[in-house]
Design a protein around this nucleic acid. Sequence first.
RNA 1: GCCAGCGUAGCUCAAUGGUAGAGCAGCUGAUUUGUAAUCAGCAGGUUAAGGGUUCGAUCCCCUUCGCUGGCUCCA
Length: 559
Amino acid sequence: MGIGPAIDEGFYYDFDLKSPFVPEDLEKIEAEMKKIVSENIPVVRQEVDRETARKMFSDMGEDYKVELIDDLPEDSVISLYRQGEFVDLCAGPHVPSTGYLKAVKLLNFAGAYWRGDEKRPMLQRIYGTAFMSQDDLKQYLDKLEEVKKRDHRRLAKELDLFSIQEEGGPGLVYWHAKGALIREIIEDFWRKEHRKRGYDIVYSPHIAKLDLWKTSGHWNWYRESMYAPMAIEEVEYMLKPMNCPFHILMFKNQTRSYRDLPMRMGELGTVYRYERSGVLHGALRVRGFTQDDAHVFCTREQLEDELIGVLELAQFMLTTFGYAEYECMLSVRDPENKAKYVGDDESWALAQNALEQALLRKNLPYTVEEGEAKFYGPAIDIKVKDALGRRWQGPTIQVDFNNPERFDVTYVGEDGLRHRPVMIHRTVLGSMERFVAGLVEHYAGAFPLWLSPTQVTVIPIADKMAGYAEKVAAALREEGFRVNCDLGHEKMGFKIRQAQMQKVPYMLVVGAREEESGTVSVRHRAGGDMGAMPLDAFIRGAKEELATKSLEMLVKSQT
RNA sequence: GCCAGCGUAGCUCAAUGGUAGAGCAGCUGAUUUGUAAUCAGCAGGUUAAGGGUUCGAUCCCCUUCGCUGGCUCCA
């Protein structure tokens, strides 16, 4: 036996088995659990000293338990829980007897390294969950079903958004027309909002000389995520895993003055990182992706205000995309393993302090996460909560005193002397791939009107109405809507079904009645038949919905 | 990368140690319809790839590739 803790959504237990679990084992074990529950066996707590516990588990041949005991302080009192012939190490508390268990289900099994260390043996882990009632359990299982239905890989296929091609290689995303359109809308919005806030938007190359990556520290601290160098006319080049060195070069292209600062340089920059094959997951974890990256060069005095500006931009973006809740984390170094990071203690302390001050000034509660910093500096990492309450990695904001040093970046101050600027690295959306995949799941594919690839489908009742349908579609296009006019020889019900399945927000049904009165019969994908209204009235309403980027319809679609 | 499982038509899935079948999608034709599927016909597959066992493999074995669930890692 390994360990078997309770986790957020249930529990697991690790075993070192001679032969791995097979699916039938789950049923057998679950049946045995039910039997034990029905026997209502008392669960008794017992406290022993370390030596006693050690001998006990050593006699039983439970070497993993012995290792756990050995890691506890010598004078610790160790609690055991005994249930019939079974005894286990546990801090507790436990239910008084097995009959207290009302609804237990084993879910799946998988390999897991002993103590999470890939150099240690791999154990067989079994996952399960438990609830106070069968109803609660059922609700949980229904939620798992809902998660499956929303899976971006499934929806991307159904809605024809993007794909990954086996012939092209794993972890490389192909954006189909509709997905590309959503991405374009998001990128346009991103650019507009960044320009408003004083960002310059740039482009940089995809490869650079190996020496550049040595200067930046990537070669030393990030090599295992980079693709092998390629020789071009006997000079080695590398594919970029990050955009920062390029932005630094652009900053250094001229002598900068304090008057140029803060300089905010943004780029939708495509990077390539080697990700181990087992970690790839749809568009959420890929090998080539486009970050909504930006680097702010500023003075130490400007740093805090710049961080506040980034935090406010992040909050604005998250809200616009319908993420109402989020959690902030201050990611700092792993104090045990400083060799993983570039730079000295002092600059790390300064950077961390600046981030902390910004969080405090914005009144944002946060937790400190050790070992979560990037190799060049500490960060604020924001996790957003989606419509199903799941947490996703969102914006990340990093302070970097090291790269300006390594690249000898300077600006000329009021005093005529050269000074060292500070750098902020930040992304708000993360990457287009991950962000859009997240949105697909957040909205279950039913994007708000402003993001929907097709906003309106016009459905003539019969072929002879095609003329009016096309007139309606043309009028809408003239107003800037993305319109599909469905002139196929199918019945209206079939066309409605098609549009529903494609999650088109509005379907406009037109027949003789509508043509005579210059109206359209409006059907909303979630609200159903909304009756006839003059075409201009529909246009006005839809424009209003667009202008507010309203999520009202989303809320409606979930009830 | 590691542990386990999976890979059959564009998609969802059947079937079998004896030259693979359905629904949807596609194409052709008919139908002209009032709020989630009109009807008929046609076409579509070296059963992921390579090797082995066998009289014969899609099925059994091995290797490779890819995917899925986890672990480790991460935008």
